[in-house]
Every structure is written in C-alpha cells, then in structure tokens.
Design a protein around this nucleic acid. Structure first.
Lengths: 161, 161
DNA sequence: CCTTGACCTCAAGTTAGGTTGAGGAATTAC
DNA sequence: GTAATTCCTCAACCTAACTTGAGGTCAAGG
C-alpha cells in the first residue's frame, strides 16, 4: 500500500493531518505552527518519513492559542494553561472546561481593568484633569509628592516596567 | 544669578523640570523617556547646557502614553493620537477632549471584542465544541471546508498574521 | 573650587513572536 | 518514473519597545 493511500486512510481513521492542512484549518502560517512547537504549545507525532502528523484536536488547541493571543496573553501564559491538557489522548470536555474557567476569569479581570481605565479617562476629561487646569488646584501638593496622581493609581503596582 | 537659582525660579514660574524629575513623576525610567522622544511622543526644550527641560503638561502626556500602552495601543498609535495635540503650547481641555473621544471609542471596541470572545468561549464550552465531541456531528462537512469554524469567525478578518 | 550625582550621545544588547532562506528529503500528481 | 509540491532543519533576520554600557559633560552642595 503506497504512502498516499496509507496517509488517506490514516487521515480518515485516526484523524491525523500534515502541518499544511493544520495551517489551512487554523489560519496560522506553517512557520508559526513550527514555532509554537518549539515553545511547547503542540507536540505532534511524526510519520515514517519524519513529517509532522497532527491530531484533529490540535485544531482546537491552536485555535485556543489564537484566541488567547488576541486577548493579550503571552505564549508562556498559554503554554501554562495548555499544560493542564493531556498530551497523549484527545482532551475531554472536562479538560477544556477546567482550562476555560481559568481563562474566563483572567479575561474578566482584563475587561474590568479596561473598563476601569476607560472610566478613569472619562473622569479626567470630565474634571479637566488632563488639561491641567483644575488638577493643580485640586492637588496643590503635587510637586512634593513622591507618587503623584496619574495612571499609576489606576495601573496598580505596575511601575518601572 | 547662578544656574541653580535660575532653574528653581524657572521651575516654579515656567513649570519646567529635568528628565529625572519627570521620570519620578510618571513612574517611567529615564531611558524610556528618552526613547519616547526618539519616537516623537515628547519634544522637550533644552537648557543652555543641552539638558532636557520638560513642561508640567508633559506629565500628562506621558501618563497618557502609559495608559494607552496598558490598553494595548502601540507607540505608533499613540504618536498619531498625540499628534493632534499642540507642540508649542500647553494643551487645552478641548485638545484633550478630542483625543480622548477617539481613544474612548477604540477602547469600547476592544472591550466589546473581548466580551464577544469570552462569550464565544463560554458557548463552546457549553456545547462541548472544544472537546470535539459534538462539533464533528454538528459540522460534518468540516473536512471539506476551506474555512472551517473556530476562532476566525470570531476574530474577523485577521488571518495569516 | 571641586567632587559627586545627574545628564548627554551613540552603539549594542534583550525579549517576544515570528518570518525568511538555504540546502536537502519526502510526498503527490501526472 | 519523474516533476512539482510539501516538508524537514537550522541559522539568520525582523519589529517593537526598551535597557545597558562606554566615554564624556553639566550642575548643585560644601
């Protein structure tokens, strides 16, 4: 049985696919998928010829990566999240539920933080803060303060990046 | 009148300050402020000795940069936004209002996009999508589709980054 | 004055997240 | 069976957003 037929059978039976197929399915580039492998986000099997063979569940895995990145999570964040998924078997619904709950919570945090910043901005515009017309009156000790007003109070502890 | 006294007087009268002072006020590092200058985010004057002298309004300017960055805007985005502010004079409230409206709208978009993605995620978990138990039944033509389901429908046009 | 800390410029290094290209092997299509 | 694809590895390059360091100047206190 030639490789091509074997591959087709395998593709139908075991749901494996090449990196090119996976790229088409996820909208990622082939190079990005290989890169993600070096970062531990996917761990494909290899066929006899050394080519990568992906499971159908890897489509979800990479889709998850895409979504998470859109939301501003780093690859390391995502790797950590995905680490809770099984490597050998196809993840069950419970597996995904667990990971998604964490994800959802972090997402809620971000949405809240953004909303808070938006409101802060509105507030400043409202009070004329940003034009420095009123804030100097409201906050006369400005020049003496180690930590003045401004985004830091909104941004929290994130100083000196 | 020695430089020191002149500087103090100027600082009180004209509200100018050194890069170190500005760093302390904004929470940014000195090197970051210089870097922002190369990117056109601030354009300080120089004193006789060639040292940078900032206006008090630059605190707001850089605070704005900090907030915008937190929200995921690039330096180029921010530069473009700040370009609408006057360079010579201290920005008026109207100046800031204008820039903030744009900013606010972009922020709203992002919040909405995040919320949409969160809901999408919830939906998928709910239907078992991510575990691939039901989606294969729901979407039997999956293997034939050029553009299958997945995050792309949520992410919009953002393909092949 | 004169020392010490803050500044200056300019070049090079750093991390994240990939892309591009060279040189070669494996598949697929006719 | 052979030509065109696709895939492989590995090294180098790329952008964004800064930091670090070398070598030298400026300014504020005693």
């Amino acid at each position: 049985m030639p490789e091509s037929v074997a591959a087709s059978v395998a593709a139908l039976a075991n749901q494996v696919m090449s990196i090119g197929d996976l790229a088409e399915r996820t909208g990622l580039s082939v190079s990005a998928i290989r890169f993600y492998e070096t970062k531990g986000l996917v761990t494909p099997a290899r066929n006899a010829g050394g080519q990568r063979r992906y499971l159908r569940s890897d489509i979800r895995r990479l889709s998850f990566v895409l979504v998470a990145q859109q939301l501003g999570f780093s690859i390391e964040d995502i790797r950590a999240a995905l680490a809770s998924l099984p490597q050998g078997r196809t993840p069950t619904q419970k597996d995904w539920e667990k990971i998604s709950r964490t994800f959802h919570n972090q997402l809620e945090d971000r949405i809240q933080r953004m909303t808070r910043l938006r409101d802060y901005l509105d507030g400043c515009i409202g009070c004329g803060c940003l034009s420095l017309k009123k804030c100097q009156l409201v906050n006369p000790a400005d020049g003496l303060k180690k930590f003045g007003p401004g985004p830091r109070s909104v941004l929290g502890d994130r100083l000196r990046r």
